[in-house]
Computed example of a mutant assay.
Amino acid sequence: MDAPWDLTVVHTADLGPRRLREVRFLLDDAFAGDVDDTDLDHALGGLHVLAHRDGRLAGHAALVQRHLVAGDRPLRAGYVEAVAVAPGERRRGLGAALTGVVEDLAGRAHEATFLGASDEGARLYRSRGWRVWSGPTGVMTPEGVRATPDDDGGVHVHDPAGALDVTARLLCDWRCGDVW
């Protein structure tokens, strides 16, 4: 059976103002308004997987590039942002479909793929082979490295070869809003 959604991949440069507004409205709907402009900003500058059903945006996931350091190893990493499924589309496989496209794209362009997951989202990612980063997390700020203990255990990695030591310290680049 064919998936009921039309999945397309679009670069941020080709989204246009109307589709960008649709993504923002979807994020607001999916997260009950618990998003802000930085959450959308973090999803810009890369690829967007859009899922439409009957001409309506039903789901979204973005893949952007970030510079991370795992232990002492700098990584050109894919980072998944703004994964959202419309409330009426949940528990039908759309989150897995979006994640599958992102995993394929990231696997062709990045050394590993990372994301910060909610408790609900974490179940999906673990079922797809993502591993919890169990080492300490931190951020490289203009003032130096700062620990992010509230994010420990919430970052997940997809590296199918299992080459990364998930017990090492993981640092991300600095940005406004939530750094992870």
Rank of each mutant, 00 (worst) to 15 (best):
D2M: 10
A3Q: 15
L7T: 07
T8S: 14
T8I: 00
V9A: 08
H11T: 15
A13M: 12
D14F: 04
D14M: 05
P17F: 05
R24A: 11
L27D: 02
F31G: 00
F31Q: 05
A32Q: 13
D36P: 00
L40Y: 08
D41I: 02
L44F: 15
L44P: 03
L47P: 02
A51H: 00
R53K: 12
D54S: 10
G55W: 08
R56F: 10
H60S: 05
H60F: 00
A62F: 03
A62P: 04
V64T: 15
V64S: 12
R73F: 00
P74F: 10
P74M: 08
P74T: 07
L75R: 05
R76T: 09
V80M: 11
A86R: 04
R91T: 11
R91C: 11
G93D: 03
L94Y: 01
A97T: 01
A106V: 06
H110N: 15
H110F: 15
T113W: 05
S118Y: 01
S118E: 01
L124Q: 02
R126M: 09
S127N: 09
G129Q: 04
W133E: 10
G138N: 08
M140S: 00
P142T: 14
G144R: 05
V145Y: 03
R146N: 06
T148S: 15
T148K: 02
D150T: 14
D151C: 13
V157G: 06
V157N: 02
P160K: 12
G162Q: 13
G162S: 13
A163Y: 11
T167N: 14
R169A: 07
L170R: 09
W174S: 07
C176Q: 15
G177P: 09
